[in-house]
Amino acid sequence: MKMPLLKVEGVSKYFQDPRSKNEFCVFSDLSLSVKEKEFVAVLGHSGCGKSTLLNIIAGIEKSNGGVVFLDGRQTVKPGLDRMVVFQNFALMPWLSVQGNIRLAVKAAYPEWDKAAINRRVEKYVEMVNLTEARNKKPAELSGGMRQRVGLARAFSVNPRIMLLDEPFAQIDALTRGVIQQELVRMWEDTGITIFMVTHDVDEAILLSDRVLLMTPGPGATLAEEITIPFSRPRTRDRLVEDPAFFKLRDRIVAFLGHRQAA
């Protein structure tokens, strides 16, 4: 059997409550795995620990036990093999669209000459349709355009896996649909594995191959795994014509809602 690309084994995380100073468990002994070229989503309510889990995988948050393997090797620090796309974009506000992507390309390919770097930057600016806006600063861009930069920056270094933390949560609904389709297209074109966390049920069903349901914290668990049966290419319009979509959606909502009430 083929080894999974990403393997999270028994990770735990405890935080100190800022007010009461009591330790609380975000999750303990959490495990999951993601296969090469897969699109996996973790779905859970706000505050259940999705970002914490993603940040631990990215290496920018320390866990209190457990191991993260990438390509069978234990990860010890953040790296270019796991690029993160942040909910709040995390673009450098003093750099233009090109500048932000160039920052990543330069870091990933320090041995390249200027021309090669520029070509790469241009290619990814084009990939996310930002050629017109390439010299603009993030403050001059809409949320959707900013996240396009975030995606281009992450794809441009050709990581082993992309870690997306609610990438479309801060984007208006109309633009969101367009960028979601762009993401799927880039995922298919590049063959880069995607691990995404979200609280949007429709988004998880629309985009991913497999959804892991995360129960509300403290002490969150990955309670159920759902393989999304719908064939690709998927579109929102096609999905809403399929009764199976609503059945699946209701099941997920009931599961998460039920767990929250408990």
Binding site: I60, K77, P78, L80, M83, V84, M92, A107
Partner: peptide, 12 residues
């Protein structure tokens, strides 16, 4: 912190 996180992920 997010800018430093980006720098860390890019292994600068």
């Amino acid at each position: 912190k997010e800018y430093l996180n980006v720098a860390a992920i890019l292994q600068m």
